[in-house]
Amino acid sequence: MALESTKVTLPSNVALAITKKAKDTSTIAALSPSTPQLFLDDKFMVFSGQSEAEVVAEGQKKGSYEQTLTPIVGKRFKVVTTTRINEELKWADDDAKLQIIDSIQSDQAAAMGRALDYVVFHGLDPKSKTELEGYSKLRDTAIQVNAKDDDVSSLDALAEAVSDEYDINGIALSKTWAASLRKLRVPATGMRLYPEIPINLQVGGLDGIPASTSGTVNGRLCTTDTNVLAFLGDFSLIKWGMVRNITSEIIEYGDPDGVGQDLKHYGQIAYRTQAVYSYTVLDPQGIAVLKKAA
């Protein structure tokens, strides 16, 4: 049976699998204290603050507590990934289709995960390498910390910069700074000073806090050097999720990704997956960014 050239909504279990795979390619998702989930409301997503509780003695008159809350609306952006494959795969049987879908899911979910970091950290479209209009950059709105003469002092300055209102529960490292920190040794023993620093996206540790390393932190795809070495702070302030529906379609004709190659002419079909993210940063001042000298 041939694959149909129609757009389909992926089942919720498949869509959830994509969301979880995105976690493996995004430092934001990796350091989020909560498990990424699909947001059922596809109209809007609102994040509001939390009021404080009043402690009163038994029988004591209860005072009033009022707090003006300004809802923060999540910023939406659509991610599209298009994969060209040989048209012979149209006639694959059902078992082969499942394997094809799983492989494409893994590849496209990785791209979706990287897109989350690029949009939130740098306001960048990773495919075109152009800045997105109307999107703030966490690298500019977070607390700015200049790198010191040595890495230990830089780490201390980064931690001191975060407001005492927030907990430090994560650090996203550029690959460059992660490598530099891993080279630090204890003079007396020669052991690594920070042995748990990850050199891949798997979450490790740094001074007892979760740490994740990726080229998305400094913006490897950015056309100009961002000078970013790391983000540290309360990553629970970054609220994000995928908004249903996640759709996929098989495209058999035309030039869907604008590369100047007609699908029919080259004997190809294209597999396109689309998803919509929504995110917000509740308070950028709960996160500090370390930058090297320009």
Rank of each mutant, 00 (worst) to 15 (best):
A161S: 15
L201C: 03
L116A: 14
S106F: 05
R185G: 01
T176G: 05
D107V: 11
D164N: 14
L193V: 03
R192H: 09
I100Q: 15
T176M: 04
P195F: 02
I143Y: 07
A211T: 02
K183M: 09
Q108R: 02
L89C: 08
Q144D: 15
E88W: 12
Q108H: 02
K90H: 03
L124W: 07
I168Q: 06
T176D: 12
V120F: 11
E133M: 06
D151T: 06
Y166D: 13
P198I: 09
E160L: 13
S128W: 03
S180G: 00
R185V: 09
D95A: 12
K127Y: 09
E88F: 14
N169D: 15
I168C: 08
D93P: 05
I171H: 00
N146V: 10
D207A: 12
S174H: 05
A96W: 13
Y166P: 09
I101D: 15
V162D: 15
K127I: 09
D156C: 01
A157L: 11
L184Y: 03
L89P: 01
D125Q: 01
V217Y: 00
G134C: 07
L193G: 02
V145T: 11
I85W: 04
T141H: 03
L138M: 08
A188P: 00
K175I: 07
K127M: 11
D117A: 05
L206H: 11
S106V: 05
R84E: 15
D95S: 07
D140H: 02
T216I: 10
L206I: 14
E196N: 14
S180I: 00
P187H: 07
G208Y: 10
D125Y: 01
N169K: 01
V217M: 00
I199E: 06
